[in-house]
Structures are given as structure tokens and as C-alpha cells.
Design a protein around this nucleic acid. Sequence first.
DNA 1: CTACTTGCAAAAAATTTGCTGCTAT
DNA 2: ATAGCAGCAAATTTTTTGCAAGTAG
Lengths: 132, 132
Amino acid sequence: MLPSPFRMTKQRQLILDEIKKMKTHPTADEVYEVLRPKMPRISLGTVYRNLETLPKTGLLRKIDVGGTQKRFDGDISDHYHVRCTQCSRIDDLFIDADKKLLKKAENATDFDILRHNVEFVGICPKCKKEEE
Amino acid sequence: MLPSPFRMTKQRQLILDEIKKMKTHPTADEVYEVLRPKMPRISLGTVYRNLETLPKTGLLRKIDVGGTQKRFDGDISDHYHVRCTQCSRIDDLFIDADKKLLKKAENATDFDILRHNVEFVGICPKCKKEEE
DNA sequence: CTACTTGCAAAAAATTTGCTGCTAT
DNA sequence: ATAGCAGCAAATTTTTTGCAAGTAG
């Protein structure tokens, strides 16, 4: 459970700001490395704790994609992702969620559905070129 | 790259068979625990190595969902998943992939799209009950 | 035969946590 | 003031890897 007075600390604000600037869907350690020059005493533990709490407030999005590490997205608007199988780059995909899809899902399960994630998997233009 | 003579060893076959029996979308360590009674000397390293190689042959599916650990699915037919936010249970969802969705995605990106994953997130009937 | 695979153990990578002191409200 | 947070470091969890011996094709 999140504590009721959710404090916007300097660390939290910076983590949020920096991730929002990044378009790369960073992992926890990538976030940490970006923060360090601006706040040298910030700890990796703090980064992990906030990457856990911020998505619960809706200020940040945790994305569930392939790979060992979790990734984060400062863009909280509804959108999907494409991941490159070769280099793991993740791009945004702003396409409309299909309403039928959601309806079908709701009919097919007993779960109360809250949201959904769509991840397309493919090969990015750069890796495509290198394959030739 | 996968070696050309892909050997179906006893370990590989057992890993595959057992996962196909399980309907729970197990993690690596869950697979390991199921195997141990049947093959006590199998090592966790072997399990991890095979959970990496088997999906590349198409005999097994690696699913990219929320949570810390990777999960695997012995059912390689096309289907989606629903995950419970409370207890992390993952159910199958056999609904038709929407063709428009794929078309839209292909139009919206430079990636060559190979496949896609859809994960619905919600609350399972059991956790729903416990909430009351 | 012989390249691929395994078991074992150690290492690396990723994440979580206990504690003490600082700070946003 | 005071509950919540941060920093630090240690612990835990998850995954990967080197190597010598075993085995499928």
C-alpha cells in the first residue's frame, strides 16, 4: 500500500523529470546513471524504491517487455510498444486500442480487466540493414 | 545462434514435457522444482540454458509479462494472457488476434513485425472475492 | 568420433532490505 | 513534530558462465 501523504522529494522529482526526458524506456540502472551527475549521492536503492512506487501513483509507467530487467516509460498516455529482437530497442507505437479486442477479452475471462499491454516484436530498421 | 544439430537430450525432453503438462506459466525455478523429483541430478543451469534455447526452436514459448522472473508457456498456439495484479496468476485467453491491429501497427512503424504479445491486467475471481 | 550438452560450483547481475538519520508536510 | 524517505551497505534473488566429463547423432 502507498502511504497516504505521498511526498514529492527532490529525488522523486528528479527521477520523474529525467525519465520523462528520456525516450529510451530505460532500465533501473540506466536511470541511475543518468541521475548520478545531477545528484551524486542518490542511491540505487532509492531509484529502485521509486521505480516501484511512482507507477502506483500513475505518474510513471512500468512496461512489461522481454529481457531480464524491468523498463520504465515517462509517457503515461495510452500507447503500445515495438521491441527489436536483435538490439532490444523499444519504440513507442501510438495506435488506437481496438475496442473489440477489449470486449472480446472481457467476455472470455472471469477477471475484472483493468488495462492491457500490447507489445509488437520485430526487427528495427537499423538491424534490418546490418543483416544484409 | 543455435547449433545446427539440435539434440533432444533426456533433460530437454523432460523440461519440455513437464512444462507442457503445467498450466501455470511457470518461472525457471518452478520448472526446476517440478523436474527434481523425476531427475534429481538435473542442474538449474541446464534448466536456464534450455529455457533460453527451446523458445528459439519454437517448441516452447517465453512470455513477457510483469513480475521479476521470466515465465514460460508450453502451449505454443496463438493466444493471449491475463495476469492478476494481486496474486500474479496468469490465465490463457484464447481470442482472435485483431487483424486491423496488426495492420495499424505495420503502418505506424519502420520495424518488420514478426509477432505480438497481448497481456491483459486485472483482478482474478479469487482475489476479487477476498477484497470484499 | 566429436561437437553439443550436462552437472557442478562459482560469479555476475538485478533487486530488495535493515537501519539510522534527514526532510516534506 | 513526525511519518515517510533517503543513503549506505549488506543480503537475497535471479541468471549466467567456465570447465571437465558424458552422450546423441
